Simulated assay, not measured.
Amino acid sequence: FMEVIPWSKLSKLLNVSPGWQPEYSPGDLHYYGQIPALNDCVYRYMYQSKYLALHDMDELILPQSVDSWRELLPLLEQKHGADFGYMFENAVFPNTIKLPPPTSHTTQDPQSSCCTGWQGVSGVNILAHLYHEPFNQKEFSNFKIIVNPRAVFAPTVHGLLNSQKGCVRVDSNVAIMYHTRPPVQTKLTTDQLVYDDRLLSYSARLTLAVNTVLKEIGLIPEDNTE
């Protein structure tokens, strides 16, 4: 189930800043109200949800060794302890890059085998972007978290401002965050990108779910089965 909490009416009452730097994007409410929205989410669901994942719509935290969050979170509790914020490294998958798999991989090219009915639908097909920018070994930036909301007093966009135990960094071999967006490291050549087909492990379930919704709202025909 998805519950959407609309914040659109705030712009009628406040000057909402479109950027994160006040000197360039001044306003009454910082950066589209992300921090108030995160605080609202934490306190709204504090006693309804065991965990909260605080990330953007174009970000997806994926376990690497198990199949689901239900399996991942007990592993993190066992290794790091409970009531921490679990920080996941940000892997940027440029939505401008569509390349076939490397010749060393036997994975079928998802662009030729999946989702042909989505061509006329707006948005980004994350299954078609399987190359990410290399991690910066000196920095761990733009991470997002999964947290027990009852251990949080004040979240921020990247982490926690005030909580019972703070945050711990999750090893990238355990789980990372897939962020499909415009490139950040704009001077990289394609041979410097890293191929990662982990998303394809979920492609069958994802495609079925997306097709169901697209058919219900009339964006693809009912008889489309791909």
Rank of each mutant, 00 (worst) to 15 (best):
Q48H: 11
G85P: 06
E77R: 10
T107S: 14
R150H: 04
A91W: 00
K138Q: 14
L72P: 04
E71P: 08
T106Q: 09
E89P: 04
P155W: 00
P149D: 09
I126D: 01
W69L: 14
P100I: 10
G33F: 03
N39F: 05
Q21D: 15
D58H: 07
F143P: 04
L60P: 06
V121D: 04
A37C: 04
A82V: 08
Y32I: 12
A91G: 03
Q119V: 05
L60I: 09
G19S: 04
Y47H: 15
K138V: 12
W69Y: 15
P101M: 10
D40Q: 13
I97G: 01
Q78R: 15
Y47V: 14
T116R: 14
P26Y: 01
D40M: 13
Y47P: 09
L73A: 10
Y24Q: 14
H55N: 15
A91M: 07
T96G: 03
P63N: 01
I126W: 05
A128D: 13
P100F: 02
P63C: 08
Q111K: 15
L60E: 02
V92W: 08
F93Q: 06
A151P: 06
N142L: 13
G123Q: 03
Q119Y: 01
P74L: 09
N90R: 07
V147L: 10
G120F: 00
Y31T: 02
F93Y: 12
F140M: 14
G27L: 04
P36F: 02
Q111E: 07
L127W: 00
C41T: 08
N90M: 05
K98Y: 04
C115P: 03
D58T: 04
N95Y: 03
G85F: 03
A128V: 05
S49G: 04
Y31Q: 05
Y32L: 15
T103K: 15
H129C: 11
H129S: 06
F153M: 08
H30E: 08
N148V: 08
Y32H: 13
N125L: 07
Q119L: 07
N136M: 11
Y43F: 15
T106E: 10
F140I: 11
S141N: 11
Y31E: 05
Q34S: 07
I145Q: 00
Q64H: 10
I61F: 05
F84G: 02
S65W: 00
P63G: 09
L99V: 12
V121C: 10
P94D: 05
Q119M: 07
F88I: 06
E59Y: 04
W20T: 12
P101W: 05
S65G: 05
R150K: 15
I126A: 12
N125D: 09
N39H: 09
P134L: 11
Q137M: 13
Y31V: 06
H129K: 08
D83F: 11
A128M: 11
Q78G: 13
T116V: 11
I145M: 03
L73T: 10
N95F: 01
A82L: 09
E133R: 04
T96I: 07
L54F: 02
F140V: 13
N95G: 05
Q34P: 12
A91I: 00
E23K: 14
L73C: 09
L38V: 03
S25H: 02
L130G: 08
A128H: 14
S112N: 11
Q119G: 06
